Amino acid sequence: MRRIWLTGILLAAAAAAGFLFLTERPLTVAVVQPEHDVALRIYGLGTVEARILSRTGFEVGAALASLAADAGDSVARGQELAVLHSAVQEARVARAQAAVAANEANLAKAEAALVRARVMLAQREVANRRLQNLVQRDVASVQRAEEAQRDEDVARADLAVAEADVAVIRAQSLDAAAALRQEEALLAHHRLLAPYDALLVARHAETGAVVKAGDPIFTLIDPATIWIQAYVDEERAGQLAIGQPGTIRLRSQPSAEFHGTIARIGIESDRVNEERRVWMTCADCPAEMFLGEQAEVRILTGTRTTALMVPEVAISGFDGHRGMVWTVQDGRLARAELTFGARDDRGRVEVTGGLPEGATIVAGPPKGAAEGRRARISEAP
């Protein structure tokens, strides 16, 4: 009986010793060390895009007669890319040209009639004045004088009609000329020209196909406007500004690092993914870029001479500004609420306030931590 009693005491003592060892032995923890010349960067994931991209086609519809370019070609501004069948439109141009020629002939005829009417009026005026003088001297009859006055009035009316005919035909000539220019413009629309120095990305139709007005025939880009469109978490986007520098890594060249600057920040965020778009130009990217290729960007938003950077995983209840961390003070663990500022691309946040005097921040959530438990500081990770 005594042996059983002693065994029980020994077991209880061993359990108590084990419990005290597990709960009171010092925990070994890593703490955050101050860093110098800290670069604050924001990570973004995006793709290679072109600021100037056009899906170009004809302003009229017809069958494609020929195509002079293909995907991958570089073309100069004004270079012919494609031609539509234009026989019908050429006939319309010829008809408009004939109408212009006919109006020119009619105008010449009307102007000749105008000259004749002026001559006739001058002749009638002279005859009328002579007869009116003769009537006053009783040499000619009143009837002849009245007839001369009537002839002058008729000649004057004929002149007015001739002048009106010339005005009408001149207006018709302007209309015919405008119609000719319209038909010539429509004929010009049967040729598709490059709107700027461009690189052809895709060809969407082949010779013989009947296309409608506005159907895309080619997709082309201005290669000088290649940039990176990246998406940044809204929580970090508040630190972005136009002109900030950054580094770019292309998926096809993971070992190379290129440099660029922010050229545009989107004014509308993605409501589903809670991300903001930024566009970065690239100063030293390869000459050959591929649209849609995945790219990673790291944008430098600032630097700190000295900073305490705490991993976000070590912060509990973090709301973007405040959170709780474990600290080591006087050799024991304690909880502290800190305030935080800028973040970096390594999942860390800058401590801006709230750290008690003499305390150090635990770099990761320690297993078995409790308020007041002894802690031993190891080397920083």
Rank of each mutant, 00 (worst) to 15 (best):
D330E: 14
E337S: 03
P366L: 07
V349E: 09
G354H: 01
R298S: 10
A334P: 07
L338P: 01
A342N: 12
L300R: 09
R335H: 15
E312W: 02
A334K: 09
L308S: 03
G331D: 05
L355F: 07
K367T: 13
T305M: 11
D330C: 01
A370I: 04
G320R: 09
V328D: 02
R343G: 14
V313I: 12
P311G: 00
P311N: 00
I299H: 11
A342M: 14
E371S: 13
S316E: 15
G364N: 11
G347R: 03
A370N: 08
A363M: 13
R373F: 12
P311A: 00
A370T: 05
L338Q: 01
A359Q: 09
A342R: 15
T360G: 02
V328M: 08
T327F: 04
T305K: 07
Q329T: 14
E350T: 12
G317D: 10
P311C: 00
A314R: 03
T360S: 11
G358I: 09
R298G: 00
E312S: 06
G347Q: 09
G358A: 08
V351M: 06
K367H: 14
A363K: 09
E371A: 15
T352D: 08
E371L: 15
R374C: 03
G372K: 03
Q329N: 09
L333D: 07
R304G: 09
I315W: 00
V349D: 07
G347I: 07
G320N: 06
G372C: 10
E350F: 00
D319S: 02
V310I: 15
G347E: 07
F340Q: 04
D319T: 05
P356E: 10
P366N: 07
G358F: 13
I361P: 03
A363H: 10
T352I: 14
G331L: 04
G347N: 08
G353I: 12
E350Q: 15
R335W: 13
R332C: 08
